[in-house]
Design a protein around this nucleic acid. Sequence first.
DNA 1: ATGGCCTAGGATCTAGGA
Length: 261
Amino acid sequence: MKVATWNVNSIRSRLDHATQWLQNNPVDVLCLQETKVVDADFPTEAFAALGYQTCVYGQKSYNGVALVSRQPMEAVQCGFTPVLGKERVGDLDDQRRVIAGLYDGVYVVNLYVPNGSSVGSDKYAYKLAWLACLQDYLAALLANYPLLNVCGDFNIALEDRDIYNPEAKANHIMASPLEREALKAVLTVGLADGFRKFTDEGGHFSWWDYRAGSFRRNLGWRIDHHYLSTALYDLATTCTIDIEPRRWEKPSDHVPVIVEY
DNA sequence: ATGGCCTAGGATCTAGGA
């Protein structure tokens, strides 16, 4: 079974890229983030034409996540609230950033973690609160689903080897100590980085800024991840980043990351 | 040192991204 995660930065702007990539890479489940479209306008038909089902959880202009799968996803849940309840979640589901479902015995969680804007901002506080909620959410899920694949755009590079120039980014958004600690705390529920099972060295990235020729110079960050429960981590056979779509015309700033088990 | 680019919405600019 293969699962891919890809922040497409608007599915309507990237529909040709998404369908072309899926034809070249017929994964079982494709997790999309930043779809930036209300559910009624999601291009479901384009995926149906390739033999794929869609489960969408979108909103106008911002955020939005979707599951694209060969077979129908089961036990689909949108947001934190179905698992944790309104009292715990509060307003953290107002932005649509979480969709999850069961596929062939694996519970796939598709996340778009808040960006946080800048260290110390209100959005930064929101990001940290969201990550604390995510920890409770995943701990609860793991009790029911021992085979858990938590993937998506985390907007955090966990280690220095995941950034092109870590010294200059030590307190930058996506690398600051509080964010990294929050994500490490999330992983203590029983998750490990699928990519790092197979690859130790740095220089592998999943996002490059549109500006300043960052991709051409490989000035990137590894912020899109597959975190696997222990049982699933043991089963994983590959985890790779496909940088090819970043070379296409009018690309997303992120590329797909694929795990196989 | 700064900004550099892209998208949506609704408009020739702003907000947000990372």
